[in-house]
């Protein structure tokens, strides 16, 4: 949990601001999960701070929520190409993926329980980065990832927006995004 708060601070997820009655303040909760290895033994305890997104109001706290997801057919097609061409498949995982998304709207959240600032207990958190549970969190994350990939030279597919392509000469590399799970497949392992 302390680790999580640290991650939140490092990424500058929020700043404390004085409460104003016009704000719609969403609650927050800690969600705990025990991560087990495949044999059932405990690997680690995981804590996640989530915002109670169901108390958000459309038009004030969020506007667009749509976030694309890769199509199943695309995944199988790319796998099939990779197998036929003997290409390598890599899997990537993004830590605290949603915390990278930048919020366009002004969203306020109560201070997380157990970590209330003792000097400013009546303040609320003005969120800068998206938090799990917010209605627009997946979209904010996708937009952020999309901007990043395009900036480093990837090209988004026109027919499946969760597919990104990078090509240099005859070599090509595909990047498939399923929220925070990423598959990287390419003809040249050096490129990957």
């Amino acid at each position: 949990m302390r680790e999580k708060i640290q991650a939140l601070c490092v990424k500058r997820t929020w700043t404390l601001v004085p409460f104003h009655p016009s704000m719609n303040v969403v609650g927050s909760r800690w969600v705990y999960k025990i991560k087990r290895r495949s044999d059932g033994s405990i690997e680690r305890y995981k804590a996640r701070l989530v915002a109670r997104g169901f108390t958000q109001q459309e038009g004030i706290d969020y506007s667009e929520t749509f976030s694309p997801i890769i199509k199943q057919a695309t995944v199988r097609l790319v796998f099939s190409i990779a197998v036929s061409c003997g290409w390598k498949i890599h899997q990537l995982d993004i830590h605290n993926a949603f915390l990278n998304g930048v919020l366009d709207e002004e969203v306020y959240m109560k201070q997380p329980s157990g970590f209330v600032d003792s000097a400013l207990p009546s303040h609320v958190c003005r969120l800068h980065k998206s938090l799990y549970g917010l209605k627009q969190a997946p979209r904010a994350w996708y937009t952020h990832l999309n901007d990043f990939l395009l900036s480093i030279g990837f090209r988004a597919s026109k027919v499946d927006t969760s597919l990104f392509i990078f090509s240099v000469g005859a070599d090509i590399c595909y990047l498939l995004v399923y929220v925070d799970d990423i598959l990287l497949i390419g003809s040249n392992s050096f490129l990957l």
């Binding site: 057919a73 695309t74 097609l77 790319v78 190409i81 597919s157 026109k158 027919v159 499946d160 597919l163 392509i165 090509s167 090509i172 595909y174």
Partner: peptide, 15 residues
């Protein structure tokens, strides 16, 4: 509709 869409995808994949 599906087999019309897939060639577009293949073009994007440069196959």
């Amino acid at each position: 509709a599906e087999v019309i869409w897939l060639p577009y995808l293949l073009t994007d994949l440069q196959i």
